[in-house]
């Protein structure tokens, strides 16, 4: 059991390094492996160095931090709500981001690459706030939280439809591309902010993993073990929401990473969040840049939105899971 966990913890960082290098050398401009490293460590301003340092590298780092962030926030929502279907999407956070972004696009504010994330971020926090208020009366019962999340998602998605219906087609196209989720157009100044929120959030959640274990046992049990459950849930929920909101604001709504990463990792390292949270983070940080690189090269020179790739991978994954589950039964 322990050796299996150790094995996973050796494999994950190795895969992370492999994906990092793979993503750096793949792309529409053909740059060799050696040239990539030369330009990475030189001060030169050759074309290659420019592509590597100011286009590919920030994009990969963004994809890694967002992947880790989404995976961990999904993991936390599943634990706190004691529901395997919980993720930023089912809690309305992604819906809120879409709504905020749609407003920015429709009112022509999206051309400023800094305003758009701000709107998306505010949209997601608005969604979290509404879910929070709605479920406060029910003492953060997991069903009512999930239900209010789904309701908020529907309300926001119809609001988005309404905005689209009254706006002109050119803006719709850009907004639509954003909503599928992609790493093609984020403002570079966003990277440090998103990285700060996601990395510090992930580290905090890794450190309090055992508190999350106790939360996941249900409120009677965790209360009788001396945990201040309501306060703990609030704090954990807010951290996870901030991570999800920061991720969505930078690169749109990327589905399935938050839902799938903890599910896959649970099969390898078990349910204990002390192992699950860091491994999910690593998995997300591997999976998302990998999908992003695939999206860049699969139909090159056309760059597909990464959300399409993750959603397809996720769909295939869940169908396999379903069929496999049936065989076992």
């Amino acid at each position: 059991m322990k050796s299996k966990i150790l094995f996973i913890y050796i494999c994950l960082p190795l895969s992370l390094a492999v994906v990092f290098v793979f993503s750096l050398i793949s792309g529409s401009s053909d740059i060799s492996f050696i040239e990539v490293f030369k330009s990475l460590f030189s001060d030169g301003i050759s074309d290659n160095a420019l592509i590597i340092k100011s286009i590919r590298l920030p994009r990969i780092i963004m994809a890694m931090t967002v992947g880790a962030g989404l995976a961990v926030s999904g993991c936390i929502f599943q634990a706190v709500l004691k529901n395997p279907l919980a993720e930023p999407f089912t809690l309305g956070i992604s819906g809120g981001a879409s709504f905020g972004a749609a407003i920015a696009f429709v009112f022509g504010l999206a051309s400023n690459l800094f305003v758009l994330p701000l709107f998306a971020f505010s949209g997601s926090l608005l969604a979290v706030f509404i879910v929070y208020i709605l479920s406060m009366k029910k003492r953060f019962d997991s069903n009512s939280m999930l239900l209010s999340g789904v309701i908020i998602s529907y309300v926001f998605s119809s609001a988005v439809m309404l905005l689209f219906a009254i706006s002109d087609a050119s803006r719709m196209q850009a907004a639509f591309m954003w909503m599928i989720g992609n790493f093609s157009s984020f403002d570079e100044r966003l990277l440090p902010m998103v990285a700060l929120i996601n990395i510090s959030g992930v580290i905090i959640l890794c450190l309090i993993a055992n508190i999350i274990n106790v939360i996941s046992m249900g409120s009677d049990k965790s209360k009788s073990l001396g945990l201040n459950v309501n306060a703990a849930i609030k704090i954990v929920f807010i951290i996870a929401s901030f991570i999800a909101a920061a991720s969505a604001s930078a690169c749109g709504v990327i589905g399935f990473v938050g839902l799938m990463s903890p599910h896959i990792m649970r099969r390898f390292v078990g349910a204990n969040h002390i192992y699950l949270i860091p491994s999910s983070a690593l998995f997300g940080a591997i999976f998302l840049p990998f999908c992003d690189t695939i999206s860049r090269i699969i139909a090159a020179p056309v760059i597909l939105p990464v959300g399409v790739i993750t959603n397809m991978a996720g769909g295939v994954f869940f169908i396999t899971l379903l069929l496999k589950g049936r065989n076992n039964a």
Partner: peptide, 8 residues
Amino acid sequence: LEPSFDFT
């Protein structure tokens, strides 16, 4: 016991 994750 509330239904929970697969803890050992």
